[in-house]
Amino acid sequence: MNIFRLTADMTHLMSVIVLLLKIHTIKSCAGISLKTQELYAIVFTCRYLDIFTDFISFYNTIMKVIFLWTSFSIVWYMRYHKIVRRSYDKDQDTFRHVFLMLPCLVLALLINERFTFKEVMWTFSFYLEAVAILPQLVLLQRTRNIDNLTGQYIFLLGAYRALYILNWIYRYVTEPNYVHWIPWMSGLVQTLLYGDFFYYYFLSWKNNVKLQLPA
């Protein structure tokens, strides 16, 4: 475990905490895309199929449980919590899951490291994670007022992905035989999708004004 990887995981954890904080304390999920949250729940379910079969480390198992548990509870809150669900902007969050999931599934069936169920699901989870943020970014652009917690949540998610790239570079240089094209390529695409958001996030931070994306 190198510093980039640890910081990446902690940033990911912080993003989830920020989102849960918003849901728990403000009882609001305004500006958060349920579609993206549902896609994340699918991503982690498909990726962590090995949770019961392959033990890697205590840290690894705990983090998997946390990401699975939190992704499903966020979806539950947004769908069923009687106060939280009222703040969900259903009419603005119109992205269709199937348009993202189907191409990712086809791609996972075609391009994978091994043609087994677990392996294809694992590959699918990476392709899907790469594009899972799109409904959230679309919603963000439609929302005129982006509150601080939503902005921070997306910033932390993007930072987590960027740190994973540093982790991969570090591991490639320091570990023999460390090559993993599927996470690398999908991770790169995923991080690039945040580029635009980062630009406006830093601009608003530098000028000390409220974050707003151009229409």
């Binding site: 990887r5 995981d9 090995d50 890697i56 690894n60 983090m63 490291e113 694992w122 994973y164 460390y178």
Partner: peptide, 10 residues
Amino acid sequence: EFLHQQKDEL
């Protein structure tokens, strides 16, 4: 084994 060894990331 080679593939498995690398699946230690989240």
